[in-house]
Structure formats: structure tokens, C-alpha cells
Simulated assay, not measured.
Amino acid sequence: MKKAVLAKIFISSLSCLTLFVPSQASAQFLPQPWVSVGGKDGDVTYAVGVRALDLGVEVGSGPDGAVGGDVLKFLSLPVISPYVGLGWYSEDKGVAFSGGVQVGATDNVFMGAGYNSVRGFNGQLGIKF
């Protein structure tokens, strides 16, 4: 009985350790830029963004000539990084909400998909330095 309990504690501790282990400090300071292309209401939308220290900024153009930016908060997990954001856009579009996920494809390249209430669904491609 004691061996089974100890084994469960060891496995759950190891799982939590791998989930919450901090990434390298030097990697957190290096910016990770990306480009994004998407669409909403039949219009093509574009954006560029950068991430550092689990915070990001994305500037983009939406339908009807709307231009604006978003501030993003990332949750760094071992393979994927989900994010949420809040932004402001011109042309009476106002406040924008966004969310998505970025996934490391290789050591230096990541891909992502997201949604912005002004710019619609989008795909992302970025570089890790």
C-alpha cells in the first residue's frame, strides 16, 4: 500500500515539475517576432507582433481600413503557449479581444493560430532567436 502511494506521489510531483519548470532566463529576454495573416468579412487582415517575458504586442490592420494594436499575455507551457489579449482599433471598431495559441515547430520557428474580434481568424509564423 505504501509503495503505491509513494509511486503516485512521485509521478504527480514529476509531472508538476515538468509542467512548471521555468525556461532559460536568457531565452525569456530575447524577442520572438511573428507575422500574421487572416481574414474577416471577406477582407484580408495583416499583423506583426513580438513577444518577450510572456508579454506581447501585436499591431495590425483590419477590415474597412481599421488599424490598431493589442497587448497580449502568454502562458508558457512546455510545447504550446496560449494567449489572451486586449486592444484598440480605429474606424469606430473600438475595443478588440483576442486569443490563440502558439506552438514551437522547431527550435527556431513557431506557428500559431488565433482570433481577434476586429481582424478575425489568423495564422502566425514566427522566429525564436
Rank of each mutant, 00 (worst) to 15 (best):
R51A: 14
R119C: 03
G39W: 10
A25H: 13
G38Q: 10
K2A: 15
L125H: 07
Q24R: 15
G65Q: 08
S98P: 00
P22K: 10
D43C: 05
W88T: 08
W34H: 15
F129Q: 13
K73Q: 05
A4L: 14
S12F: 14
A4V: 12
S26V: 15
G49R: 09
A66Y: 03
L53T: 03
P82G: 08
V79T: 11
G49L: 08
G39N: 15
D92P: 01
A25Q: 13
G120E: 02
V59T: 05
F74M: 10
N122R: 06
P82V: 05
F29K: 14
K2C: 08
I9Y: 09
A113G: 14
F74C: 01
S81Y: 09
Q124F: 01
P78Q: 07
T106F: 06
V21R: 08
A105V: 11
V44A: 14
I11Y: 15
S76V: 08
V48H: 04
V101W: 07
A4H: 08
F74I: 00
D70C: 05
G112Y: 02
F129A: 12
V109S: 01
F129S: 11
K93I: 04
M111Q: 00
Q102V: 09
S90L: 02
V59E: 02
W88C: 03
G56H: 03
Q28V: 13
K73L: 10
L6Q: 13
L53I: 03
I127E: 05
